[in-house]
Every structure is written in structure tokens, then in C-alpha cells.
Design a protein around this nucleic acid. Structure first.
Lengths: 137, 137
DNA sequence: GTAACTGCAAAATATTTGCATCCTT
DNA sequence: AAGGATGCAAATATTTTGCAGTTAC
């Protein structure tokens, strides 16, 4: 049987390995964003730290996941839900960070609003980070 | 003669030292955001790396500067233009990163738009990061 | 003079690279 | 079998901490 994670990997011309499957599963199973350390914990330290770095980097390059800008400058990753392609990531995204439980949500469905920039600034990509209280708190 | 930077420091109950004056000057003289490494370079490595870390941290705590969320997770700092007070930073901000010259601008004057979040999400603070081409490129 | 700030050394963390071995195709 | 992926070791880079000496007030 071919699982969803296998498909995602194959579609991106990546060989299907234990670490990639497991890490990708974490993302599909979770609607929150994950930090490198979360992944280490949730995989039970089964994989080398270096492997996790390389796997995440590969996934970002392929457009499977993307990094989330955070105010405290921790590094967070979340699944790309739609048309992200290698190299360029389609990110008109809204991210939500809960002040209480500290989970970061990637709200792909929320439409990003327009902003009026000063003269001379030409916008291309926009990332929005909202913080507050989430639906589960 | 009392300079502006001196005033800012005094207003925040910080003693006026060389490093603090110089680093604060960099921020007031620049409309872009600064990374730790920028500060090292622009001060001509005159101050210890540790002093810069501590100075920046102090400024953030006092609400003189704030960190900017970046997609590539580098750590950037910019001046707070208005009513930021100790502990809590008033940040309905728009930040603009130029794809060309790579400068980050802190557009305090731009009004942040409203977004419609899914049920149960209560927004408090919103940070917007726009990238594209800036007025000088 | 005293409290606060700085610089140096070193510890703790985080990230990257090289290479030999193992696994996927 | 061949190319790519992993794990280990080690090199770098980044950030934090402790402490003694110096400076601002």
C-alpha cells in the first residue's frame, strides 16, 4: 500500500526513506508548525540531528514545507498546502501564534489583505503573523 | 550638549555609555533594520560581541528597539518609533524587505489591515512582512 | 563610593561539512 | 550496481554565563 507521505516524496523525486517518511508524517498529522527540536523529541531521538537538518532543508527546497517568520527568531516549519514548487514558494500566508499554548498555525485558507505601501515600494510576497489566543485555548 | 541618543538612554533609566550611544546612533541614523553582524561591522569591531548582545537585549527590554520576524530566520532589530514601553511592545507594524538590496524597512506609518480569522482565533498583535522592491532600487 | 556596564574567557547551543557506510531504486 | 541518504566525528558559528576590572553617576 502506498501512503500519502510516500506519494508526496515520490512526486518530488525524493527517495522514500525512514526519516523522511517519519518527519513528513509529523507534519501531516499536526496542524501546528514544528521546530527542529520538536521533531527531535517527537521522533524519539531516533534520527541523527544532522539528518533532521538535511531532511528539513530538502523539504524546503522542494517546496514541501516552508519556514515561518517568528518574532522571537526561533526556526519554525510548516507544510505547504498548495502550489509551492521547487525554489519558489507561493506564500501569501497567514500564520497564527497562540500566546497561551504557543502553537503556531498555518492558516492557508485565510486571504491576506492588501496594504498600502509608501510610494516606490513594490510588493511581491506578503507574510502575516498574527498572535493572540487560538481556538483550543 | 545633550544629544538625542543621550536623551533616549536617560529616559529609559540606562546609563550613558560609549557602546550604547554608538549602537543607538546606528539605529537613528539608518532607516533600515540592523542585524547583529551589521552592528559589529559598522562599529568597526570596537565593541565586544558580548557587549553588543547585551546592549541589544537591554534595548529590546526597554522597548527602544524591537526584533523583526524574518523568513530566513536571521535576527533583525529596528527602532521603535512610538509608544513602546518596557516589557510590551506596541507592534502593529509593517516590515518591508527588499529582494534586491536586501534592506529591511520598518514602515511604522503604514496601517495594518484587518484579517478574517477562522472561528475561535482571537487576534492581539499582528506583524506583516512584505517583500518586493524598495523605493531605492 | 556604589551600582551598573564592559571585556575576556569559557561554556553551552546551534548549524555545517566531510567522509565512510548503508539503503533505495 | 550506482547514486543518494544516513550517521558519526569534527569544524564553525552563535549565544549565554561568570567574573574581575572599569566607568557612570
Amino acid at each position: 500500500m502506498t501512503t500519502t507521505t510516500d506519494n508526496i516524496l515520490k512526486r518530488n523525486q525524493l527517495s522514500v526513506t525512514d526519516s523522511r517518511k517519519k518527519i513528513l508524517e509529523l507534519f501531516t498529522a499536526n496542524d501546528g508548525a514544528l521546530a527542529h527540536s520538536d521533531i527531535e523529541k517527537k521522533t524519539g531521538e531516533k534520527f541523527d540531528r544532522v539528518t533532521i537538518y538535511r531532511t528539513l532543508q530538502t523539504f524546503v527546497e522542494k517546496g514541501i514545507i516552508h519556514t515561518i517568520p517568528t518574532v522571537d527568531n526561533s526556526v519554525l516549519y510548516a507544510l505547504c498546502k498548495m502550489d509551492c514548487t521547487e525554489g519558489h514558494h507561493h506564500d501569501n500566508h497567514v500564520h497564527f501564534v497562540c500566546d497561551n499554548c504557543n502553537v503556531t498555525y498555518c492558516l492557508d485558507d485565510v486571504v491576506t489583505p492588501k496594504v498600502n505601501l509608501p510610494d516606490g515600494f513594490k510588493p511581491k510576497v506578503m507574510d502575516v503573523v498574527v498572535s493572540g489566543i487560538c481556538k483550543n485555548c
